[in-house]
Amino acid sequence: MKKNKVVIVTHSNDNPSIDVVSEYLKERGVQAVRLNSDLFPTQVTIENHQTNEGSNNRLITEEGIEVESGDVFALWYRRFQPAKGLPKDMEASFKGPSAEESKRTLLGYMDSLDCFKLDDYWSIRHASNKEFQLMLARKVGLDLPNTLTTNSPKAVREFYHANQGNIITKMQTSFSVWEDGQEQVVFTNKIEEPHLEQLESLNLCPMVFQAHIEKEVELRATIVGNNVFCAAINPNEISGMELDWRKRGQHTLDKWMPYELPQDISDKLVQLTVALGLNYGAADIIVTPKGEYKFLEINPCGEFYWMDAFQQLGICEAIAENLLAGGRRKV
């Protein structure tokens, strides 16, 4: 029997990119099956059979769609929120173990599928390590800003002076904190001299410090296989986004414009994803007033859909083609 299904690992509140990619696959005779990870184990079922004769897995979605492992030729890993649907009043002593078992079962399901993965979970986890990706970015020839990751106040003070007092700080992971009942997302912030005497909390949580780069434009370059799709935004477009466009993210969606990257930068970004073991990545780049391209980071599962929705860059179609082709084609 011909394999004719693609499993999309996401969650029930994901954006319409799932539907657009699924429609492209349907036009090519392939059924996209949505695995809403937040609905496992409450509504989604997984049966993983391992015997001496072999293995067989069955996925049953909340809509009752059944998928045998032998029918799956590709998996698109996009979002992962196992056990989010567990009852809110479930005792913590049971909820924690249930969430961990659910995560491991889903990972076991994905790992046991003998198919192409865009991308493999463990490659994504490794590629998410900022120091690792910066090291590889340097090796492929991308230009980096001076960066320090540390829990040492002394190292930060030395870094501040070595970069003429012009540095910013950010976190390696995206998260928020709650203050007075309000969710406060942690964004990029400028370090001023008075802050140098307020670094004691680094012994509780290390941070990333980076030379502050003057911006002509900010770029988001989305790599899919051998293709690079790029959009740009003026950092002065909206007040409050000079250091981090995400601070005003919802207000910038229609402000991005298509941008043509120099071929050598595009080639290096593809080389970086190859080195990271990825077919997909979303890279953040700054273009300086001098025309320099400064690579900041690459997100293995970074968002892209707003660029497709407003600028029709063709990323959804490229993702569908990458899934159908089983990865990037040799060039």
Rank of each mutant, 00 (worst) to 15 (best):
F209K: 02
S128H: 02
I238A: 08
A283D: 13
A282F: 03
P262C: 03
D19L: 12
L134R: 08
D19Y: 08
R328D: 07
D71Y: 04
Y24V: 01
H161W: 10
E297M: 01
P300S: 02
F209P: 04
A127F: 00
I168L: 09
F304I: 08
D111H: 13
E47M: 13
V208F: 08
V30T: 02
V20F: 04
I167L: 11
K5L: 07
K290A: 15
V21L: 05
H212P: 02
F132S: 11
K2H: 13
W256T: 06
W178F: 13
N163T: 11
W245V: 13
V331E: 08
A137I: 01
V274D: 06
V21P: 04
M90I: 09
N56S: 15
V44F: 09
N236H: 14
A32N: 00
Q133Y: 05
E260K: 09
I265F: 05
L269V: 05
L296S: 11
N227G: 13
I65P: 06
A32C: 00
M1N: 11
K215S: 00
M1Q: 14
I315L: 07
N236P: 07
P97C: 08
R78H: 05
V217H: 03
V186P: 04
W245H: 13
K247F: 08
G291M: 09
N36D: 13
T188E: 10
F73M: 11
C301V: 11
N227T: 15
I60C: 03
E62Y: 08
R28H: 15
S12L: 00
R58E: 00
Q250G: 10
L253R: 12
K3M: 14
F80Y: 03
K117D: 01
L313N: 07
F187A: 02
G277Y: 06
I265E: 04
K215H: 04
D143C: 12
E193N: 10
C316I: 08
D14S: 02
F40V: 02
N48D: 14
T105G: 04
Y109I: 00
M257Y: 12
R78P: 09
V30N: 04
V185T: 15
F94H: 09
A162E: 15
F94P: 04
P258G: 07
W245C: 10
K255W: 11
G181W: 10
L106R: 06
W306D: 09
I213R: 02
A155C: 04
I298N: 02
Q43A: 10
R79V: 02
S22T: 08
D119E: 07
F80C: 07
D14T: 01
H126N: 12
